[in-house]
Design a protein around this nucleic acid. Structure first.
Lengths: 339, 339
DNA sequence: ATCAATTATGTAATCGATTACACAAATCTA
DNA sequence: TAGATTTGTGTAATCGATTACATAATTGAT
């Protein structure tokens, strides 16, 4: 039972041509009702399934889009993907996922193989700011394949993006800490060659300035996004002559590490020290000492990225669209910064 | 710059035929060194990219596999997918993801569209035990497309599966509670028409029997996998004339809800009451009162499912393979069950 | 120098579906 | 009823790559 039924098989059986079968199946108005019915019935009887590869080859549209993320098992990214899938599924698109593990080589390789696979668009969160991938990205744009950056982007001609306002997120989080009465606010930053981290930092800085707080370079530490990095950073901060009494962390994981280390040093949260995270990872809500965090609405971000893609693909004029969507971040204020 | 370079373009430029170009690109040994070099150079110069759709149509292999999960933004599933992707990427396969939201209609629809897209295999965690999807699944098997169930499975001819030993997981978790001195152990079960929940339940039951503890039907409650369901279930348990002093929950989320509700009732964990979860969701580790849980090694499960697929696809004989892999669960014993 | 074997390349069919163009039959017009 | 329309199908090319088979060119054997 491994045979595949093709339109030719149906045609042979009914003694008509494949062209007629194709037209009948596609509800072409030029086909008589009788023939159409006959074809549809026979197709059903023979368990005909259309071969989308053949269709795609002919039409030049694969109905697949590629999504590239650093790794899929991070809640933020899987939520974005969920949003993308839910938006594109009703439109008949399939989502192909690729992981880069923040490795530039893989990033380039993924883009290339997706292009070879003839995807109709690529949605990606770029992980590397070097110039290495520029030619590959340019190739995508030149081929008129919609490319949309989400969360992490890079300025490039012809590339759309959906991001959140990281500056505002940083600003609001810092302001919340100030409002809570914190006076010496430290900041855990990520790699600041990435816009997102740079912007969160700038928002932090601006809030300090606006509310007349001192800016201390020793208070800004670059950390990885994990628990241990947060612990280490806190250790450094506590050894300062004048340690801070709050942290705005660009990473929820680092924020958690910070809290753990602070507690072990007998520091009370939020009484003596407040912490604000970024990302609104699920665990921040589940903790007994729940962590305040900036929500990036990943679901919404994914949906929006998908919408931008759809808009772009339906653009028949040869005008290059370049759309920049910036979502508003929302604060989730929890125990770690409430007193 | 939207033109695509095909082998015909290369052929024309070099005044040879497309066949020769194809052979040169595929390192066919019948091609002279000179021609091969010339073709490769020209291809590079013209920025030739192979069109995998055309290749796939010809070969009948799309190099895509479909992965169907209830939803991607649950850590367990995204980790499985990560494992699958990492195992299949080096083999040149792309992973297409589909979500069902536990809806049977979508499940059937996803299988169908994946088949139409000519995927080379389908890996899925089945969410519905009704007979509705049987014909569709049978169709996959009949077409000789490898189908592999992971985590949640259904007994079907020709379908392989990768699961963990849920019975042993349930048994060991319950035993751990008994070892901790708990005497009246309740159980939160999921929908027991799903094998995984039935088996966890059976393991629980067996452990009680083996260690001579009473089995109380009031102690077994079917809950959904979320925090509120856990809270409600605890409320019920506490209203019993002889309430339990431990819970083995089939869900980490329900376990968390249980703990929250217990605490609010002034019950001390683990001193007065122990809790064991299932799934080892990331948050169980991050809580201050960390939750013991049964680890399902999702990464390993994904890797293994991918390996079974690869094995099956390389099976040239027409023998149907049906492989059942059962992974050993591993206990993560944490504070919620340690005294 | 003749025939066989080897090597490199061309020819054309194939994978399955779509569609511009051609054409026959049915229907309509005057 | 001749000629013009309309309607429904067929013919054949196309999408891009692969490959069985055919054939030309070269090398080797005797």
């Amino acid at each position: 039972m491994d045979q595949k039924t093709t339109i030719y098989d149906i045609a042979k059986k009914l003694d008509i041509t494949a062209a007629t079968v194709s037209r009948a199946l596609n509800n072409n108005p030029k086909i008589s009702e009788a023939t159409r019915k006959l074809v549809l019935e026979t197709a059903a009887k023979m368990n005909y399934k259309q071969n989308r590869l053949a269709q795609s080859l002919r039409s030049g549209k694969s109905n697949n889009v590629g999504v590239i993320v650093p790794r899929i098992d991070v809640n933020f990214f899987s939520s974005v993907i969920r949003g993308i899938e839910e938006e594109l599924h009703p439109e008949g698109y399939h989502v192909i996922i690729c992981q880069t593990h923040e490795d530039e080589k893989r990033e380039i390789e993924n883009i290339t193989t997706l292009m070879n696979a003839q995807v109709d668009g690529i949605l990606m969160s770029i992980s590397n700011m070097s110039k290495e991938n520029d030619p590959v990205i340019k190739h995508v744009v030149d081929k008129n394949v919609p490319l949309i950056f989400f969360d992490r982007k890079k300025k490039m001609d012809g590339v759309s993006s959906v991001t959140i306002d990281d500056f505002e997120g940083g600003y609001l989080a810092t302001k919340n800490l100030i409002d809570a009465g914190c006076t010496r606010i430290a900041h855990f930053s990520g790699d600041r060659s990435l816009e997102i981290y740079e912007n969160r930092f700038k928002g932090y800085e601006q809030a300090l300035k606006d509310f007349g707080l001192e800016w201390n370079p020793d208070y800004v530490i670059q950390t990885k996004s994990n628990v241990d990095a947060g612990r280490n950073a806190v250790t450094k901060l506590l050894s300062l002559p004048n340690p801070p009494n709050a942290i705005f962390s660009s990473s929820d994981f680092a924020a958690l590490g910070a809290i753990q280390e602070l507690k072990e040093n007998g520091i009370k949260i939020p009484e003596d020290f407040c912490v604000f995270g970024f990302g609104n990872e699920p665990f921040t809500r589940f903790l007994e000492l729940s962590i305040s965090s900036v929500d990036q609405s990943p679901l919404e971000m994914g949906r929006m990225a998908a919408k931008v893609f759809l808009e772009q693909i339906s653009n028949t004029d040869n005008i290059k669209i370049e759309k920049k969507v910036v979502l508003k971040p929302e604060l989730q204020i929890r125990k770690s910064s409430t007193r």
